[in-house]
């Protein structure tokens, strides 16, 4: 049972990191990024490469994956989206562009996994880091590290958004991009920032993910629904939504799978996606703006004086 809870917390932490990026880029750019899950897998393979080639512990490679992930996020914006936005492409076309980008990343990941296999003379198309994990008083490293990453991210975002001048402009343009643009705030900067952070956080999450589950090039296709469910349930119009949604989806998925595995035996992991899908559908039907878009949440916010 305790293992289940640990797994649930780690998975939730990672989902928060992944959903944060999705929500931020949706707010600033207005497009749901279907390549978000592949960002994570790119992160996993960067960590694997550093481990195999220079023996760097995946936890220690997090700063590198963060930066490379940021570059990946930026190139997504520059290559796949910006040229289309300039030509006033519709939202549907932008979504197709992120699907295309996702396919390109998938192709690169797959090709790269084979290249890496050829270099290391092992099969690198499927890997886990579980055996590398450390342990403090019985608490596994993946729980400690993923929680720290979420805490650091929140703290960093809080300081940036509430304590700096750039952050205030950023918040203004996230809350109301058209108004901010009219007020002369540079919306482009907020886009660049959000895409950098989105890629960086996702790759960071991706370098911890192999401690939790097996990675193959197709893993992105397995987790993409969870990320979208987290962002939508939490509310796509509010960064805090990713936090709320990440924990709700992460914990529900893990507990649901646990209960099912007691009832039906192993091999039920896939049904966790059903619970995410149902929660997502319920949100879309009842309150598309998600939990942070409800009147009640606004009251909580006012009460917390945010």
């Amino acid at each position: 049972m305790i293992d289940v809870l640990i797994g649930a917390m780690v998975w939730s932490n990672l989902l928060v990191l992944l959903a944060l990026g999705l929500t931020m880029t949706y707010i600033t750019t207005g497009v749901p990024n279907f390549a978000q899950a592949s960002f994570a897998i790119v992160g996993s393979y960067i960590a694997l490469t550093l481990l195999r080639l220079i023996g760097l512990n995946p936890y220690l490679s997090i700063p590198v994956t963060f930066i490379l992930g940021g570059i990946l996020g930026l190139s997504t914006y520059y290559i796949a989206l910006k040229p289309l936005i300039k030509r006033k492409a519709s939202i549907e076309m932008l979504m197709i562009a992120t699907l295309a980008w996702d396919l390109i990343l998938f192709g690169i990941i797959g090709a790269y996994s084979e290249v890496l296999s050829a270099i290391t003379k092992k099969t690198e198309t499927l890997f886990v880091f579980t055996s590398l994990d450390f342990n403090i008083y019985g608490i596994p490293g993946r729980l400690i590290v993923s929680s720290l990453l979420v805490l650091l991210t929140i703290l960093g975002l809080y300081l940036l958004l509430y304590k700096t001048k750039f952050g205030i402009a950023l918040r203004a343009s996230m809350e109301n991009p058209s108004l901010a643009e009219a007020m002369g705030i540079n919306v482009e900067n907020t886009r660049l920032f959000s895409w950098f952070l989105s890629g960086a956080l996702a790759c960071m999450a991706g370098s911890v993910l192999p401690y939790l589950q097996e990675i193959v090039p197709q893993t992105g296709y397995f987790i993409v629904v969870s990320i979208f469910a987290a962002s939508i349930v939490g509310g796509l119009y509010h960064i805090v939504g990713a936090l709320v949604g990440g924990y709700i989806i992460g914990i529900s998925e893990s507990l649901f799978t646990y209960i099912l595995s007691i009832l039906l035996g192993p091999g039920v992991l896939v049904y966790s996606k059903v619970i995410s899908l149902l929660m997502m559908i319920a949100t879309v039907l009842l309150h598309p703006r998600g939990i942070t878009g409800t009147e009640m949440w606004r009251r909580v916010e006012r009460w917390l004086n945010l």
């Binding site: 289309l84 030509r87 197709i96 390109i104 998938f106 192709g107 690169i108 084979e114």
Partner: peptide, 25 residues
């Protein structure tokens, strides 16, 4: 190619889609 051609196929069709979206929507 140090990898299977199917990966190349994905990359090629992904790029093709981006090019069409941009230059010949």
């Amino acid at each position: 190619l140090p990898f299977e051609a199917v990966w190349l196929q994905y990359i090629v069709f992904g790029i093709l889609a981006l090019l069409i979206l941009c230059y010949k929507p």
